[in-house]
């Protein structure tokens, strides 16, 4: 392959990877922004989303909907609703009772939820890889010798559309305004008549639904699912959120895309190689924390009393 083709190939891989990271990072960022919690369970939500959509898709495969594009869209929609509700339930059970508790308790509680989710998935799948069968064809187009399937191209477009919808939701609706207000000052919002509990639940719904959609896309893209798949992407999505500035919505998208690109080009550096891919993004995280801890889009923040 010529240099140009390598660049195109890696650019494309990076965009795909980056859009998964971005979708997951959004949930981290939103939840962190609104209740200042690093939601460890978020990465496992991504995994649950993958498995949930697989079951739905297998079910639709037997009906008139089929497991082609229509089936995928329908099951994605249903997955997002089911998993979004799961997110709301998790918030209600595990985080809401601890809202006034010390930060440490909340973090440990999130860890507990994460363990419950991925270990349940392990028990259900008996720890094996599950193939993700779809009715999609392998047709596509090629740029030079780089071959890109339609599926891959559509996945990127779908991720971008979801991000745009979220952006509009946050900036243009009353609910979005309430979310932004709560992340600034929760008590003040309560005094102004904002239903804080409802908005927090809504934030969890939206964040987890996005992660679930990313999980489904990952299933379609990689063709298999594993109960542990959330673990590494959780750390990377967090890195992405920090790159963009945690708590900042466009930052999470930007950070995700940047990390995806950095990573896919990073594998081309001779010394690093793909075995060190995960180490590479972790080092990026540490470097960002040292040199630009507020992230690319973040403003300097002074911690409130």
């Amino acid at each position: 392959m010529s240099l140009q083709e390598i660049v195109i190939q890696q650019l494309f891989n990076g965009l795909l990877l980056g859009s998964f990271y971005g979708l997951v990072a959004l949930g981290y960022s939103m939840v962190y922004g609104i209740i200042r919690l690093l939601n460890f369970a978020h990465a496992d939500i991504y995994m649950v989303g993958g498995f949930c959509s697989l079951s739905l898709l297998t079910f639709f495969g037997g009906t008139f909907i089929g497991n082609g594009w229509l089936g995928i869209i329908v099951s994605m929609f249903i997955t997002m609703i089911i998993v979004g509700l799961l997110g709301v339930v998790i918030e209600r059970v595990a985080y809401k009772p601890l809202r006034e508790a010390p930060r440490l308790s909340l973090l440990i509680s999130a860890l507990g939820v994460s363990m419950i989710l991925y270990n349940s998935a392990m028990v259900v799948t008996s720890g094996e890889y599950r193939p993700y069968k779809t009715g999609l064809s392998y047709e596509g187009f090629s740029i030079g010798s780089v071959f890109i399937t339609h599926t891959q191209a559509i996945l990127i477009v779908a991720a971008v559309i979801l991000m745009l919808i979220l952006h509009l939701f946050i900036t243009r609706t009353m609910y979005g305004k309430a979310m932004r207000a709560i992340s600034m000052d929760r008590d003040c919002c309560r005094l102004m008549g904002v239903n804080v509990n409802k908005i927090i639940a809504l934030t969890f719904f939206v964040g987890t639904a996005l992660a679930a959609s990313a999980g489904m896309m990952a299933g379609v893209y990689y063709g298999s699912l594993h109960f542990y798949m959330g673990f590494v992407i959780g750390i990377k999505a967090f890195t992405a959120a920090v790159i963009g500035g945690i708590g900042i919505i466009p930052g999470a998208m930007l950070g995700g895309l940047m990390l995806g690109l950095l990573e896919s080009f990073g594998t081309q550096i001779p010394f690093i190689g793909s075995a060190w891919k995960d180490v590479f993004s972790f080092i990026i995280l540490i470097l960002i924390l040292i040199f630009k801890p507020t992230g690319l889009l973040g403003k300097k923040e002074s911690e409130r009393m």
Binding site: L98, I108, S109, L111, G112, V113, S114, M115, I116
Partner: peptide, 10 residues
């Protein structure tokens, strides 16, 4: 262990 952690915190 996960359930125990969660229950303990709550």
């Amino acid at each position: 262990f996960g359930v125990v952690l969660l229950a303990l915190m709550i």
